[in-house]
Nucleic acid binder design. Sequence first.
DNA 1: CATATTTACGTAACTTGTTATGTAAATTTA
DNA 2: TAAATTTACATAACAAGTTACGTAAATATG
Lengths: 318, 318
Amino acid sequence: MDFFARSGPFAIGSRLRLLSERLQRDAGELNLRYGSDLKPKWFPVFYLLMQDGAADITTLAESIGQTHPAVVKVVNELARAGLVERRPDPKDGRRSIVYLTASGSATIQPLQQTIRDVDAAVAEIAAESSHDLWGALGEWERLLDEKALLKRTLSVRRKRALRELTIKAFTPEDQPAWHDLNEAWISEYFVMEEADYHSLRDPQSYVLDRGGQILIAHYRGRAVGTCALIPMEDERFDYELAKMAVSPAVQGLGFGEALGRATLELAWSLGAKVVYLETNDRLRPAIALYEKLGFRHVSGIESPYERCNVQMAVRSGE
Amino acid sequence: MDFFARSGPFAIGSRLRLLSERLQRDAGELNLRYGSDLKPKWFPVFYLLMQDGAADITTLAESIGQTHPAVVKVVNELARAGLVERRPDPKDGRRSIVYLTASGSATIQPLQQTIRDVDAAVAEIAAESSHDLWGALGEWERLLDEKALLKRTLSVRRKRALRELTIKAFTPEDQPAWHDLNEAWISEYFVMEEADYHSLRDPQSYVLDRGGQILIAHYRGRAVGTCALIPMEDERFDYELAKMAVSPAVQGLGFGEALGRATLELAWSLGAKVVYLETNDRLRPAIALYEKLGFRHVSGIESPYERCNVQMAVRSGE
DNA sequence: CATATTTACGTAACTTGTTATGTAAATTTA
DNA sequence: TAAATTTACATAACAAGTTACGTAAATATG
């Protein structure tokens, strides 16, 4: 069993399960020795009934942290063993209430003795320990309630990935990425229009020669994101932010936000006061990102693109 | 989920399982997010192969603390997914060695990234904790290796029961217990003989009137054990220890030993130097008990009971 | 107040482990 | 060295939970 020693925290799940099974097995054997034929899996339900006298299925399931079908099975087995009985709730026809039978009540005493003895044995282990397993479990449960391991790990990943991300001005080697990354999302949600073909094939004349800027995000040796700033003739706005694309392979790492911020920084550094963009209401995540970057909805602007029905703008310093 | 708060250490097994499942679910989801379709249950086997390159089923099973059928299933699934391959061991026809395939090796890198990120997330939790779950788990595993919870609880129970045990001289109310407890074990292992009927029906004349003693063990208001000291005519021995019986309902609580010690104490206090007993080699636990009490095997004594083929004696102060 | 939604519970099918049992190869023993 | 035992693995059946889905009662909503 050297696996846990070698694998570290990553295997915490398996390790806990193993310890749990070991203890569960002991509990079953103990119950036999104490002269009761309660199965270990019956314990939680039985224990609650023992304390409260009666309860409905849903309450039992919530109390012990299992699903209701699991409780239904346990209750059925307990009923077959003659330890509990269920009666319909007179107030609510959907509910059925589980009661201890006389025979079930008779089982309480040996069980309580077992519980006392197990608690004493556990106290003995605790006394020999320098660490507090109880405290540690409680703390873990609380911390995971606040933020699950999943979220915690994803946020670790995001921070790490952002450290590896570099955002640089467009160079000719970035042309394939510029084309492919943008074509991918456009043709996924819409149909490529004439203006798209031009700007994707020839960014030099459609963006750069007009005084625009293109930023490319690189991650682990690959171009994974693009974003452009295009000067506007409308005097209300300085630049249009356009062709924001991030490779689906690296989505969820916050690259879009990083790229957007870098692009806006660039705009402000070029003296811009207001940056404008156009998008479509079907692109919910993109709109959420723009809002996070400070963009606010504006109206009354016409677009050369058919697909654009949402207009947004952000002002320097907002 | 108030159950754990209410039930205390007794429910440690369920509590660990619940936490384990929660983490396992997160691990599966994480793997998807990291672009690998490794199932969480594949992790341990895959991880070991990743480190060692190849291994046989039994070694894998021992390393991860699961049974070999579980490993066989995992290996079959991994093979179906094209991640591993098994070849027969040329040195041992029973064994088959599991290797990572090229596709399996390609999965290593994203997995290692996942592991690093999870470890970092766990480290973050550990940093927020005042208790050390790792240390606590390691300690529990070690303490349970030394002595399982089962044994610990049984020893708690034994100590508690012994505190409730009282051993007193025979009184007429003890007559039914004297009779029934002894008849039970005699007729379970042998056939009741004439001498048995007499001594069980009339302990007064067969033991007490001859200068003998009878001790009765009481536990929770019931007579649960008997033991007699009968004076002997053989000048080599002072008393015979006989009719040692303990109710099966309370076996394993150490009552036999307590009763035996009390009886020997009584013998020494009456001035005896040597106590003798007869038994049968089929009664292995009884003989073990007598040896624990200090009795040693002797030979060359004839018995009035047919069933007695083992003779033992103990000397004062041994 | 009729309709839509939610809630409580049941059932079926699946998941991830276990024990029990069988078989062939290797090893030990008489 | 033949026979008995042990070892390595496979497979079937079981265990204890889950998810998915269905139904009827209760509750919310237009």
